[in-house]
Computed example of a mutant assay.
Amino acid sequence: MSATPANEPLLDYVTSCALPTPWAQFTLHAFVEHGPGFGPAGKEHLAMVLGDIGDGEPVLARVHSECLTGDVLFSQRCDCGAQLEGALQRIAQEGRGILLYLRQEGRGIGLVNKIRAYRLQEAGADTVEANLQLGFHADARNYELCRPMLAQFGVKSLRLMTNNPRKIDAMTRLGIQVAERVPLLVNRNAFNNSYLNTKQAKLGHMMSPASVPVGEPVVVTAAAPDAS
């Protein structure tokens, strides 16, 4: 995928509205991307904001990739829906934060291909092998849009809710400081246990509950699956 020229805007800020949720009333902001560097022109992305986040202090944040099956259909095959809910709850508890909702389903392969990948998993492949068998990267997501979305609100430093070291590396490469990693370990169950172990073993996801200050480069290592 070719990169968008540096002087060409990636997306447009469109409008906003109040969004009451069970935990707090957020402000929902809508963006529309231009394409073709990140994805199809016209793809829509969202930011949910609570409180004053443009004061220069690190902001509690979640960069969440769309997962219709988990976020909307309550699938237990992943932890995505629970991470979305947990992140919004934490932001509400603090009274300040931002959640970016990026439309890159299935780690970037799209909804229909994700369902194809699920079918391959039912035949014995793990979540990484299934994406590779379909001809995709294990993780095809692109976080380039985060920079202009966060800049819209004057956010330069994050307390990032994630278990994924690649996401921290991506923010750092974009010039966005990650002051702290806040683990988001939720909803391990009988249906997603193997999936979570694979993300730990093959994608380097950090399944430790301890908050990690980010002062040094993140090193991705393949940890052994846990025993749970």
Rank of each mutant, 00 (worst) to 15 (best):
residue 102 L to V: 09
residue 50 L to N: 04
residue 143 Y to S: 02
residue 227 A to G: 06
residue 151 A to M: 01
residue 204 G to H: 05
residue 32 V to A: 09
residue 18 A to E: 14
residue 95 G to C: 06
residue 70 G to K: 06
residue 13 Y to C: 12
residue 99 L to F: 01
residue 90 R to E: 12
residue 93 Q to G: 05
residue 210 A to C: 10
residue 116 R to S: 07
residue 108 G to Q: 02
residue 70 G to E: 07
residue 226 D to E: 10
residue 222 A to S: 15
residue 73 L to H: 11
residue 104 Q to D: 02
residue 191 F to A: 08
residue 134 L to T: 00
residue 180 E to Q: 15
residue 152 Q to C: 11
residue 213 P to S: 14
residue 34 H to C: 11
residue 209 P to H: 12
residue 110 G to Q: 07
residue 79 D to M: 04
residue 27 T to Y: 01
residue 40 P to F: 01
residue 172 T to M: 05
residue 62 R to M: 09
residue 127 T to W: 02
residue 113 N to Y: 00
residue 172 T to K: 01
residue 89 Q to T: 14
residue 189 N to K: 05
residue 16 S to L: 09
residue 25 Q to W: 05
residue 74 F to E: 12
residue 105 E to S: 02
residue 142 N to M: 00
residue 172 T to R: 08
residue 77 R to Q: 01
residue 31 F to L: 05
residue 213 P to F: 14
residue 75 S to I: 00
residue 87 A to S: 15
residue 223 A to G: 14
residue 47 A to Y: 14
residue 32 V to C: 09
residue 79 D to F: 05
residue 208 S to C: 14
residue 227 A to D: 13
residue 142 N to I: 00
residue 163 N to S: 05
residue 34 H to M: 09
residue 213 P to G: 14
residue 168 I to C: 04
residue 222 A to M: 11
residue 197 N to V: 06
residue 198 T to W: 12
residue 15 T to V: 10
residue 79 D to Y: 04
residue 55 D to I: 05
residue 98 I to G: 03
residue 161 M to H: 08
residue 77 R to K: 05
residue 141 R to Y: 03
residue 62 R to T: 10
residue 137 H to S: 14
residue 120 L to V: 15
residue 117 A to N: 03
residue 96 R to N: 06
residue 201 A to G: 06
residue 214 V to P: 12
residue 146 C to I: 04
residue 11 L to I: 11
residue 89 Q to P: 06
residue 140 A to T: 01
residue 133 Q to R: 12
residue 35 G to C: 04
residue 38 F to K: 10
residue 133 Q to G: 03
residue 126 D to A: 15
residue 162 T to D: 02
residue 29 H to E: 08
residue 111 L to H: 10
residue 19 L to P: 03
residue 56 G to N: 06
residue 188 R to C: 08
residue 69 T to G: 07
residue 123 A to F: 09
residue 177 Q to D: 15
residue 190 A to T: 14
residue 225 P to K: 08
residue 12 D to T: 11
residue 52 D to C: 03
residue 74 F to L: 10
residue 161 M to I: 04
residue 160 L to E: 08
residue 23 W to F: 13
residue 108 G to P: 00
residue 187 N to F: 14
residue 152 Q to G: 08
residue 85 E to A: 10
residue 91 I to E: 02
residue 138 A to I: 07
residue 228 S to W: 11
residue 188 R to K: 13
residue 219 V to F: 12
residue 59 V to R: 01
residue 193 N to M: 14
residue 47 A to T: 15
residue 224 A to F: 10
residue 208 S to T: 13
residue 133 Q to M: 12
residue 157 S to T: 03
residue 112 V to N: 04
residue 74 F to H: 13
residue 58 P to Q: 09
residue 117 A to R: 04
residue 8 E to K: 05
residue 41 A to S: 13
residue 87 A to V: 07
residue 219 V to I: 15
residue 46 L to Y: 13
residue 53 I to P: 00
residue 12 D to A: 10
residue 160 L to I: 06
residue 181 R to T: 06
residue 43 K to N: 15
residue 186 V to N: 05
residue 129 E to Q: 13
residue 176 I to R: 07
residue 146 C to F: 04
residue 68 L to C: 01
residue 115 I to A: 03
residue 123 A to D: 14
residue 158 L to Y: 12
